[in-house]
Write a protein that binds this DNA or RNA. Sequence first.
DNA 1: AGCGTCACAGCAAGCGCTTTCTATCCGATA
DNA 2: TATCGGATAGAAAGCGCTTGCTGTGACGCT
Lengths: 349, 349
Amino acid sequence: MTVTLADVAARAQVSPATVSRVLNGNYPVAASTRERVLRAVDELDYVLNGPASALAAATSDLVGILVNDIADPFFGIMASAIQSEIGGPGGRAGGERLAVVCNTGGSPERELTYLTLLQRQRAAAVVLTGGAVEDAPHAAAVAAKLQKLADAGTRVVLCGRPPSPDTGAIALTFDNRGGGRELTEHLIGLGHRRLGYIAGPEERTTTRHRLEGHRAALEAHGIEEDARWTVYGRYDRQSGYEATLELLRRDPSLTAVVAANDSVALGACAALRDSGLRIPEDVSVAGFDDLPFSVDAVPSLTTVRLPLSEAGARAGRIAMGREEPPPGGIATIRGELMVRGSSGGPRAS
Amino acid sequence: MTVTLADVAARAQVSPATVSRVLNGNYPVAASTRERVLRAVDELDYVLNGPASALAAATSDLVGILVNDIADPFFGIMASAIQSEIGGPGGRAGGERLAVVCNTGGSPERELTYLTLLQRQRAAAVVLTGGAVEDAPHAAAVAAKLQKLADAGTRVVLCGRPPSPDTGAIALTFDNRGGGRELTEHLIGLGHRRLGYIAGPEERTTTRHRLEGHRAALEAHGIEEDARWTVYGRYDRQSGYEATLELLRRDPSLTAVVAANDSVALGACAALRDSGLRIPEDVSVAGFDDLPFSVDAVPSLTTVRLPLSEAGARAGRIAMGREEPPPGGIATIRGELMVRGSSGGPRAS
DNA sequence: AGCGTCACAGCAAGCGCTTTCTATCCGATA
DNA sequence: TATCGGATAGAAAGCGCTTGCTGTGACGCT
C-alpha cells in the first residue's frame, strides 16, 4: 500500500540502510549510489515515515510554540517570527522542522496539556510566549514540566515571559515594568494627575508588571492613587470599552486612561468617543505593544513599542541552537515609548 | 533513563499490552487492574511516546492547519476557531490532538513542503485556509498532494479556499465574488460612479474573485471601468496606503475606493487623510472581511463580514469527522454587507 | 608482492508501542 | 457435574526507520 524505505531500497538495488543514509545525508555514500537512490525515491514518490524515524532516531523535528491567543496579532507576530527562524520550509537552516503553534487560550490547564503533548512527541524545542499565570500551584506544575522537557533534551525558550528559575529555560523577557513606568511618566509630564488604568486579567504576570510600572511612576511623582482608578479586565477591545465606561462612572474627572495593551486602548477610545469625549483634548489614552493597527487609529495611539518580531526571531534562533543564549539564560528586552496623537495635555479642570 | 510502557507494566504487575489498553481505553480492562496501571503511570510520571504509538498504530494525532500569514488576524481567527474544534486540550472531543499551525507566508513552495511534512507525519487531517495561487503548475502539484493525502486517509478540508476538484477535499468556500459585488453595488447605490479598486496580489484566487464581483457590479450598472482605477498590491496596510496614493495620482476625481480587505482599507484611509481628504465626505472607503478592528476605525469601516470563526469551527469539525461534510463536498459561505461610517454619498463634483 | 587503509555498503538489533491471537479463569447453563 | 461462553490478560509479531558494527574491494605504501 504505502511505499516504505525497503521498497525504495529494492528498487535502487541497495540496502535500506543506504537509503536511510542518503536521505539523512550524514554518512558517506558514493555519488552514483546516491543518485540511484534519489531516483528511486522520486519514481516511487516515497515519503519518509515521520513517526518511524522519530522513534528510531529518538528525536523529532517538531518545535512547539505556545501562545495565549493565536487570533491576537501580539501573539501572531511573535509566532510568525519564531517560525520563520525555526526553519520550516523556506527557513535558512536545513533539516526542515515543523513548527507547531498551540493555542492555550490563556488557560493554565491547556498550557500544561500542550506541554505534555509536546513532550509526548519528543519535541526538539518549545517556545512559550506571553505572560504566565501567577497562580503558585500552576506555576510550579509548569516549571516542573519545563524542567522535565529540558532534561529530556528539549530546548525550552520563554519569549516575552518572565524567567522560570532552575528549569533550564532560556528567557527573553519584556521589560513591562519599565515600559509601563515610562508611559505613565510621559502622561504625568504632560500634566496629568488623574489617570485611570485598565489592567489585564489580574492573575497574569504581564498585567502585574505593567501596573507596577504605572504605579511606580505615580509614586515617583507624588501622585496618590485612588483605588477607583484601576479596573481589571481582559486583553481585548471589548474589555477596554467596558472598563472605560466604568472608570468614567467612578470618576468623571479623569484626564487620562492608560490601557493594558493596544486592543484595550482602542476599546477605551471607542468608549470615550461614545461618551462624547474628545481624544486627547478631553482625555488622553495610551496603549502598550504598538501593534500594527495602533498607528492607524484616529488619533494614532501613544504606546510602548515592543520588538515582537525581533524577540520572536531571536527566541526561534536560540531554540534552534543557532544563537548563543544570553548570559545567565536571561535577557530583558526593553520597549520604546511611542508618543503619538492620543496623548496631550490635560483639559483645564 | 526515560520511562517506557514496559516500566509501567512491570510496576503495575501487568503486561505491556494491558497498559497500552488502559491508556487507549478501547478494550475491556478490569477496574482494579486499570486503577493499578493508572497509579503506576502516575508514580512513574510516564508519558507516552508519541512517535512510537503513531508508528505502531499507523495513525497520528496531528492535525495540520495551513495559513498564509499567522500574524494576520484573518488567519489567526480562523486558525483559532479550527483549533478549538480540533480538540487539543479543552476541546470537547476526547483523544487530544495536536493542532499544527503552519505559516506558508503565501509561498506556494512552502505550502507544498508543509503538506509533505504533514504527510510525513501521517497527519490525521489537514485544513488549508485562505485563497490559493492560480499558477497552474503549482495548483496541480497541490492538488496531487491533496489527493495523496486523502488517499492515505488524511481528511482534507479547505476553509475559505476554492474547491479542488477530484482530490477528495471538502471545501468551505467564501463567496468572495458575491460579497465584492454587493459591496460595490452599495457604493453605486449611494451615487458613486468613479470607483478605485485596490486589489490583492494578482495571482490569488481571492483577489480575482473579489475583483470580479466588483466589476460585475460596475457592469450591471452600466459603469465603464477605467483601467487606471485598479491597482494590485498586497493584503496589508502599507500596500493600501501606497496604492491609494497611486490611485489619487492617476485620477483625483475618484469618489470611492474599494479595498481588497480591511487592512488595505485602513491603509487607504490613512493615505486619504494624509492627502487632506475626508472620509466619507470626499471619498468613501470600503473594506472586506470585517476584522475586529474595522469597527474601531474612524470612521468605522463599511465592509463585508465573513464568518471566519464559524467557518473555521465548521472546518475543524468536519476535519475531525464530527460533522457531515456538505453535500457534494462543497459549501459556499456568504458574506454580509456591513454598512458603516466610511461610505457615504459622493461629493458634488 | 604483501598488507594496512580507506571508502562504502550491508546486517541486524533495536526504538516503544499496538494489536491479533491465544490462554485462562469463572460463573452460568444444562 | 461437565461444558460453554464471556471477560480479561498475556505472548509475540510487527510498525518503518536508524545506526553500530562488520564486511569487502580498491588503493597506496613499503
